[in-house]
């Protein structure tokens, strides 16, 4: 029992206590931020879903024209929008999304548009071409930023600079579960799950030229989807951080209990030894 001195154990307990205080504080901060982010994500969710469904409906019912946004291209120049966090200590949040993107990206000429500091750092260290690191702070991004990113991407997509635009974000399933997800934004893919209404006589009427309508709508769609994904990701980050810090606090508690036991035993052993010595010496 005298292998570890009581003083050493006491020091470790003290350092564990202060670590626990930090993780506890971080958990509470994340919990309060989560509440806000969750409300925002839940508010944006119908927008995200309805926007997506509506565009899918339009794409499905379209047969009359071929917008550049609808055509699959042979090339492989892809832009990957990646939404990750600004800070670490969020459990698997950052590594999950970055791993997912890495597994999906095969061509070396894939350009990355990282959002969030962790994504910027990761892809820079891996040597991917980075479009811009203007959005290194995911927390500061607003609706306006999303729409301006979308506008720029649409422009370069139409200009033929890129053949595909994909997005990776983390879906906020619940407070306890978040899923990294990747989707293709452009070109718009025709969904095959639902049967086409072949016998539908009436074609959709477009305000003005159909092509023009698409040119106006697609940047809006992209911006909206990006904003929705950003809200989901932000809520996921806080939820992941809260869970990670909660378990860290629990671990600290366990270790403190364990060390306290050891400490008491060591102290008891020391006292016993002292008594033995006194008794033997008398």
């Amino acid at each position: 029992m005298s292998g570890v001195s009581t003083k050493e154990i006491k020091n470790r307990i003290r350092s564990m206590e202060s670590t626990k205080q930090i993780t506890k504080a971080m958990e509470m901060v994340a919990a309060s931020k989560l509440r806000r982010a969750q409300i925002q994500a839940l508010n944006a969710r119908p927008y995200f879903e309805i926007l997506y469904d509506t565009i899918q409906d339009i794409v499905r019912s379209d047969r009359s024209f071929s917008s550049p946004y609808l055509k699959e291209r042979a090339g492989n120049r892809t832009v990957f929008l990646v939404i990750a966090g600004d800070r670490g200590l969020a459990g698997g949040y950052n590594s999950n999304i970055l791993k997912l993107v890495q597994s999906q990206v095969r061509e070396p000429d894939t350009a990355i548009l990282p959002i969030g500091k962790k994504a910027v750092d990761f892809f820079r260290s891996k040597g991917f071409p980075i479009l811009t690191d203007q959005y290194a702070e995911a927390a500061a991004m607003g609706v306006g930023d999303c729409f301006s990113v979308a506008k720029q991407l649409c422009q370069s997509f139409r200009g033929g600079e890129y053949d595909r635009i994909c997005l990776a974000y983390t879906r906020f399933v619940s407070v306890l579960s978040q899923e990294p997800a990747a989707m293709q934004l452009l070109p718009l893919v025709k969904p095959e799950d639902r049967p086409e209404r072949r016998n539908a006589r009436c074609d959709t009427v477009y305000e003005g030229d159909a092509e023009e309508v698409f040119a106006a709508i697609v940047p809006e769609y992209l911006g909206g989807i990006l904003y929705g994904a950003l809200c989901e990701s932000r809520a996921s980050e806080q939820a992941a951080r809260r869970a990670a810090m909660d378990s860290a606090t629990q671990n600290a508690d366990e270790m403190i209990a364990d060390l306290s036991l050891k400490f008491n035993r060591a102290r008891q052993a020391a006292i016993t030894q002292e008594i033995t010595e006194i008794v033997a010496g008398s």
């Binding site: 009436c202 959709t204 009427v205 305000e207 709508i217 809006e220």
Partner: peptide
């Protein structure tokens, strides 16, 4: 107000898309 001017939508409108 659509891009082409004001539009009023009533019930049973034909499929329609406008910015």
């Amino acid at each position: 107000r659509t891009s082409g001017g004001d539009a009023a939508i009533l019930a049973r409108h034909i499929d329609y898309v406008a910015p």
